[in-house]
Simulated assay, not measured.
Amino acid sequence: MSNQQDILSSVIQSVRLDDANDTLIILDQTLLPNEKVFLALQEMKDIWDAIYHLRVRGAPAIGIAAGYGVYLGTKQSRAETYDDLYADFLKVKEYLASSRPTAVNLFWALDRMESRLKRETGKPVDEVKAALLEESEMIRSEDEQICKSIGEFALSLLKPGMGLLTHCNAGTIATAKYGTALAPMYLGQERGYDFKVYADETRPLLQGARLTAWELKEAGVDVTLICDNMASIVMKEGKIQAVLVGCDRVAKNGDTANKIGTSGVAILAKHYGIPFYVCAPLSTIDLNCKHGDDIHIELRPSEEITTKFYAKPQAPEGVQTYNPCFDVTDHSLITAIITENGIAYAPFEESLPVMFKHDK
């Protein structure tokens, strides 16, 4: 379908590297759907700011940005020896790591870049920088293949004509291509599945309204936007046959951190007997994290609730706010966790480690 190919081609470059100009180029997702603006970032503080303020968002996209960012920061080093370059690399890595404490892909990408740096021990500085460039490009290209594989496994669980509900945005602009939770929707669109997708608006930053609804509509997918508190009624009315969400971190027992509101959707799905699927690249699965209680939940500024999307404040001035960015969905509410290497079912302590063995 030409329209499908056109939309994927137009949005897959939400994060890309202009190496010749020492620039990271990102699609500013905070301006969608009204403006499609690409930012050219050269300073580390601007890359940090883009990650922190969600100009680049989505776990895989954050990882890609981190890989490119730490490469560019190291490329700018004037070190003449491997050891001095390594020291400069660590400064950049530590700085970028402080931008989003919950996003495991951020640390995964930075650690992967450091592992590559270690493998280049003792080599000339120019060769080490070239190796870091290669590794950052591999992070991006591998993510595209990962998303496609997650989409294929997820599609195997779905049937044509199904009603699907998703929360937040786990689409192509949050990844290298296809997305995670939206990947089966794009693949289904290509293959005539005629899915009917319901997108939660996802308060308070409205990623579902601004991003998911935008990209699915552009791709020609049958998408309906609903407020977060409407999920129950569309389930009760039989409009939803499956829920698919992305994630930012999965603990060893299957507890999953995702955008705030995900846990409530899972509880509703359990009540109505609807399967709840988490689409999780292996890079988001943290086997060193035993359960959800160990996941740090980032608290966001109060303006996101009170003023950010309004011409005038929509809450009393000075009112106290509580604005956690994520919540944790208990593993007991999750039907399956879909990875690029297969589908994991409970008990997740046993099935999740098996997913990694496919990479050996």
Results as ranks from 00 to 15, higher is better:
I62F: 05
A65F: 08
D255R: 03
Y345R: 14
F153E: 01
E94W: 00
N21L: 05
L17Q: 04
N323F: 12
T30I: 03
L39A: 04
P124C: 01
G58F: 08
D200Q: 06
I62V: 15
Q5G: 00
V354Q: 15
Y193N: 13
H271Y: 15
A346Q: 14
L287I: 13
L72P: 02
L39P: 06
G208V: 03
N34H: 14
L27G: 05
L157H: 09
I7C: 13
Q314G: 11
N105I: 00
T102V: 14
M355R: 13
P101T: 07
S9T: 00
M138N: 08
L225S: 05
D18G: 02
A280L: 10
Q145W: 04
L157R: 15
I260G: 05
M113N: 07
Y310A: 15
Y277Q: 06
A336G: 09
D6K: 06
I25R: 00
A176D: 10
R210V: 09
I285L: 12
G246K: 09
I274W: 07
A251T: 07
N34L: 11
N253A: 12
T202Y: 08
E340A: 14
N229Y: 02
K308S: 12
K290R: 10
P101S: 07
R100Y: 06
G171L: 09
S77L: 05
A269G: 08
E237D: 15
H291A: 13
P281D: 07
I25N: 01
L333S: 08
Y198Q: 12
M185F: 08
S149R: 15
G161N: 01
I337D: 04
C168A: 11
R16K: 14
D327I: 02
P275S: 11
V125P: 00
L72W: 05
F195M: 07
V243Y: 07
G179E: 12
I305K: 13
P184M: 12
Q5M: 05
K177T: 02
L287M: 15
H358L: 10
R119K: 13
Q189C: 05
R119H: 10
G192W: 02
A40I: 00
L206Q: 12
D294A: 15
L206T: 07
N229W: 01
S2K: 12
T102E: 09
Y52T: 14
Q5P: 00
E137R: 00
T262D: 10
D327V: 01
R300H: 13
R57F: 10
S115L: 15
G342A: 11
R203M: 01
T172W: 05
A40K: 14
G342W: 08
L110F: 06
T321D: 01
A344D: 13
I7A: 09
R116I: 11
I25T: 04
A183N: 04
